[in-house]
Design a binder for these strands. Structure first.
Length: 302
DNA sequence: CAGCGAAGATTAGGACCGTA
DNA sequence: TACGGTCCTAATCTTCGCTG
């Protein structure tokens, strides 16, 4: 008796005929018939009632099938015990850091899908004040990988770019600038400004916009919380520059967005991790993120 | 009830593998 | 390398249910 004969028995049970079972097993009908005949001879029992239109398992056949399924379960268990159930299935731990902004607007789905696809990897998620803080944690070995907005300081870091986002100015819907689609930096300088706190990816973007000219407008407050910044702008306390995906993902009728004329507002975002670190879970995560870069980009651009 | 088609059983022959 | 066993395919036979 061997597993092939029992596999034929199960295939017949599921398919209802020798011919269909043979197709499933990629054999000919006669080969399946041969396997069953040998099994029946060995056991001295009829395992299958040859009836029309469908053949059915005899009580002895059902007993044999139950035994086969128990055996398959045992084999599976044995493979798990020796860690060879699927050599491609990686297990272990992965520490991931991201700003709340990143999780909410860009990476939440990606991280969720990764956890679902790799149940044997324990993902430990840390939220950081900013992407820069995430990168600092990677350098300090407090986390394995961090989602960041570039540029990021750190020679010991390796990076993967996942996409590019634009920045836009936001004003309250009733603001006099709300009748325009775009605005110059000089006009922005005439209004109180709500600025991202140092270290935030978008702070780098606004520094680039304002510090290349005559500096920032009057700063009324700083924050690293995009939702808070949007709230302050809605209250009419000032204008702000935010990543466009934070506006278009959850369109707010109380806010108006303005393209910034003549200024580079694009900013790359992606992953950073320590150079020369060998980790299967990290490799898998980076590959997973790379494969979904277009989906993330779609989120950033929507 | 004969004819037909579908499906299982049987048989001949070949490929492959282990063993002496 | 010859031989025997195993397992397969292809061809053919047999059986059974359906239909006119």
């Amino acid at each position: 008796m061997d597993l092939k004969q029992l596999a034929a028995l199960r295939a017949i049970s599921e398919a209802g005929s020798f011919g269909q079972a043979a197709k499933r097993l990629r054999l000919t009908q006669s080969a399946v018939s041969y396997q069953i005949r040998n099994l029946e001879e060995e056991l001295g029992q009829t395992l299958i009632f040859r009836s029309r239109p469908n053949v059915t398992l005899s009580p002895a056949g059902l007993t044999a099938l139950r035994s086969y399924e128990r055996i398959l379960g045992e084999i599976d268990q044995l493979r798990i015990s020796f860690g060879s159930r699927d050599e491609a299935e990686v297990s272990g731990e992965l520490r991931v850091a991201s700003s709340i902004l990143g999780i909410v607007y860009l990476y939440g789905d990606l991280i969720g899908e990764f956890i679902y696809a790799h149940p044997r990897i324990e993902v430990k998620m840390t939220t950081t004040e900013s992407g820069q803080e995430g990168a600092r944690q990677v350098i300090a070995r407090q986390t394995d990988v961090a989602f960041v907005a570039f540029p990021i300081d750190g020679a010991q870091l390796q990076s993967i770019t996942l996409g590019v986002s634009e920045h836009v100015a936001i004003v309250p819907a009733e603001h006099r600038l709300a009748e325009f689609d775009s605005v110059t930096v000089d006009i922005l300088r005439q209004h109180p400004f709500v600025r991202y706190a140092p270290g935030a990816g978008s702070r780098h973007a606004t520094d680039r916009i304002f510090l290349s000219g005559h500096g920032y407008p009057p700063i009324i407050l700083e924050s690293n919380d995009t939702e808070f910044i949007k709230r302050v702008v809605r209250m009419g306390l000032g204008l702000a520059i935010v990543p466009s995906f934070t506006i278009s993902a959850a369109k707010d009728p109380r806010l108006h967005t303005l393209r910034i004329e003549g200024q580079p507002t694009r900013q790359e975002f992606g992953l950073v991790f320590r150079r020369r670190v060998k980790s299967k879970t990290l490799d898998l995560f980076c590959e997973f993120a790379r494969a979904r870069a277009s989906e993330i980009l779609q989120k950033a651009g929507r």
